[in-house]
Structure formats: C-alpha cells, structure tokens
Amino acid sequence: MSKVYIALQDNEESHYIVEAIEEDNPDVTVIYQPAMIRIECEGHMVIKRETVEEKMGRDWEIPALHVNLITLGGNVDEDDDQLSLTWNN
C-alpha cells in the first residue's frame, strides 16, 4: 500500500491539527524535521473539521488548512467537513 502524506509548517496552529489527525487516524507516523512536520500513513488519511475545532477550542474551516500546509501526496477529496488523502493501491 502506498503512503499518503501531508506536511505542515511547524507552528502553534499546526500542533492542534496534528493532534486531531493523530486522533482520527491512529496509524499515522509523525516526523518532525526543521520547521516542518510530515505526517504519513498507508493508503488513507482524513482531517476532520470537528476534531480540529475541538482541539483548537474555536471555529475552524477546512480551507484554513492551506495557511499552514506545505505539501501533500495522494488523491484529495475535500468538502465542508473533511479533507481526505487516498491512494487506491
């Protein structure tokens, strides 16, 4: 199975997003590199608005991810409630 991945700038906001990703995707691997955090997972990963909002304690919309995003790999599916990355192989 191929690995999907997302890399975020290493900052306060991203830490909550990473926490949310870890909670919703127990199999992810989180790698800290200078100024960035790379999160990878076999096959599929999802970022849920509700979980991020809970971690941040405030409203948050999915497109706000772009502010801290560096890069990603996988087929993207985005709607109001979630953004998912998938490789079907």
């Binding site: 590199q33 200078p34 100024a35 960035m36 772009h66 502010v67 995003l69 560096i70 890069t71």
Partner: peptide, 21 residues
Amino acid sequence: MSGAAYNGDMATVTFGFSAQS
C-alpha cells in the same frame, strides 16, 4: 527549505513553504 530553516534563513523557508502550500 527545511534545510534553509536549519541554516537560520527564516525568510527563505517562509517564502518556500508559503509557495509550496
């Protein structure tokens, strides 16, 4: 760019990551 950050160049790493987003 991660390397740029590790070499103290915050300006470059920031435009790099911002562009890459």
